[in-house]
Amino acid sequence: MKKSAWLPAVIAPVVVAGAIAAPALANAASTPLAGSNPTAAEVIASVAKSSDAQYSGKLSQTSDLGLPELPTGSGGSSLEGNASDAISMLTSSHTARVYADGATKQRVQVTEQLAEQDLIRNGSDVWTWDSKEREATHVTLPSDAQKSFEDGTATPSDIATKAIDAITPSTKVAKPTSTTVAGHDAWQLVLTPKSSDNLVGSVQLAVDKQTGLPLRATVQAKGQSDPAFQVRFTSLQYGAPAARLFDFTPPSNAKVTTKDLSDVPTDHAGTGEHAFDRADAPTFAGSDWDTIAELPAGTADTSSAGADATALLDQLTKAVDGGRAIQTSLVSVYLTDDGRVLAGAVPVSSLVAAAK
C-alpha cells in the first residue's frame, strides 16, 4: 500500500463493515417465505436463497458521513490518485452496473468521466481493472472460496449479510413491512442496536419477496435524519447475464499485478479472499455493534508521505490523546502515535480507551 493511501484504504471498508460488524450467530436456513405475513426470521432465512441468483442491474450508492470537502487545485484534486479516489467513494454519489451468475461469477462496473473500473470474478479468478491508470490486478482465490471478492464496492447483499450476522440479543428486529425497490415487491426489515455505546441508529434492509435478494440497504447514524450510507438497485432484471461479461484479458500495455491465494486457508482473515498479509491482519475488541478493529503498529506510518497526504491528514483528523482521530456520523478512526489504526462504529473516546 502506498504510504499516501493508507488513510482512505482503512476508512473505506470500515464505513460498511465496521459500522455493522459482529460475530456470526447462526446460519440462516434456505426456506421459502411462509404466507403473506412472514416473520423477520423467515425474511432473513430467505436471503440464503439468493446466493445462486442470476441477474443484471444498476446500483446507486450514496454517502453522507459529514466528511469535509476535499481540497482541489486547478487540475482537479490535489491529492494523489488512490487517496482521492478512495475518499471520493465516501463523500460522493456513485452508480455501478452489476452482473451475477450464481455465487462465483460476478462483475461490477463503475464508469465515471470517460474512465472505467471493473471487478470481475469467474470462479477462483478475480480481476480488477482501472482504465485510467491502465492497471490490472489478478487474484487467484482458494478453490473452495464461495463469497464474492471484496474491494470496498458494496452491494445490498454485502450489507445484508453483515447485518444479518449481527442479529444477536444486542439487536432489535422490527416486524417486516412491505415496500417496493426498482419495481420489485420487497419486505423491509429494520435492525436497531440496543447498545447506546455506538454510532449506528439502524440498518434497514429491503429483501425481494420472490427471490430473497437484498435490493436496498440503508445505514442510519444516530441523530441523523438522512441516511449515512445507502446502496440500492435502481433497475434489476433476473436471468443469466452473457458469459463473456465474466471473462477478462488485460490490454497488452497494462501493468498487471498478481497475487496467488490458492493455498491460503479460507478461514484466514474471514474467507481467505482478503489481501491481508498475516502480519497485517486486524485484531478485534468488543462485540456486536461495538466491535473495534485494530491494525498493527506501522500501518499509519506517514513519515514518507507527501505534502498532499499530510494536508489531507491535517484536514480530516484532529489531535487527541496519543494520536489523531476522525469521527464521522457513522464511524471513527484513531491513528496512534506508534502507527496503529483503530476503527469502529463507536465514538473516538472508545477507540482511545481500547488502544491503551
Results as ranks from 00 to 15, higher is better:
residue 1 M to W: 12
residue 3 K to L: 03
residue 3 K to D: 13
residue 3 K to G: 12
residue 11 I to N: 13
residue 16 V to F: 13
residue 16 V to Q: 13
residue 19 A to G: 12
residue 21 A to P: 15
residue 21 A to T: 14
residue 22 A to F: 14
residue 30 S to C: 14
residue 30 S to Y: 01
residue 36 S to M: 09
residue 39 T to R: 05
residue 42 E to H: 08
residue 48 A to Y: 06
residue 48 A to N: 10
residue 50 S to D: 11
residue 53 A to V: 03
residue 57 G to S: 14
residue 58 K to C: 07
residue 65 L to F: 11
residue 66 G to D: 07
residue 67 L to E: 11
residue 69 E to R: 12
residue 74 S to L: 15
residue 74 S to H: 08
residue 76 G to Q: 08
residue 79 L to S: 01
residue 81 G to M: 15
residue 82 N to H: 09
residue 90 L to T: 03
residue 97 R to N: 12
residue 98 V to E: 15
residue 111 T to Q: 10
residue 117 Q to S: 15
residue 118 D to P: 07
residue 118 D to S: 13
residue 124 S to M: 05
residue 129 W to A: 12
residue 132 K to F: 11
residue 136 A to K: 01
residue 145 A to D: 06
residue 147 K to T: 15
residue 153 T to G: 05
residue 154 A to F: 14
residue 159 I to A: 02
residue 159 I to T: 00
residue 165 D to N: 13
residue 171 T to G: 06
residue 171 T to E: 13
residue 172 K to C: 01
residue 177 T to H: 00
residue 178 S to W: 00
residue 183 G to V: 08
residue 184 H to C: 05
residue 186 A to T: 03
residue 187 W to V: 00
residue 189 L to N: 00
residue 195 S to A: 04
residue 197 D to S: 11
residue 200 V to I: 10
residue 203 V to L: 08
residue 206 A to N: 09
residue 211 T to Q: 10
residue 213 L to T: 01
residue 217 A to C: 08
residue 223 G to T: 10
residue 223 G to H: 09
residue 228 A to N: 07
residue 228 A to S: 15
residue 228 A to L: 04
residue 229 F to W: 10
residue 236 L to T: 07
residue 239 G to N: 10
residue 241 P to V: 07
residue 243 A to E: 07
residue 247 D to I: 03
residue 254 A to Y: 12
residue 257 T to A: 14
residue 259 K to H: 15
residue 260 D to Q: 00
residue 261 L to V: 05
residue 263 D to M: 14
residue 265 P to N: 14
residue 265 P to E: 03
residue 271 T to G: 05
residue 272 G to Q: 04
residue 278 R to H: 10
residue 287 S to T: 05
residue 289 W to L: 13
residue 296 P to G: 03
residue 298 G to P: 02
residue 299 T to S: 11
residue 300 A to E: 09
residue 303 S to R: 10
residue 311 A to W: 05
residue 312 L to S: 04
residue 314 D to A: 11
residue 321 D to T: 13
residue 323 G to F: 00
residue 324 R to W: 08
residue 325 A to T: 15
residue 328 T to V: 04
residue 333 V to W: 07
residue 335 L to E: 08
residue 340 R to V: 04
residue 346 V to F: 04
residue 354 A to E: 07
residue 355 A to Q: 03
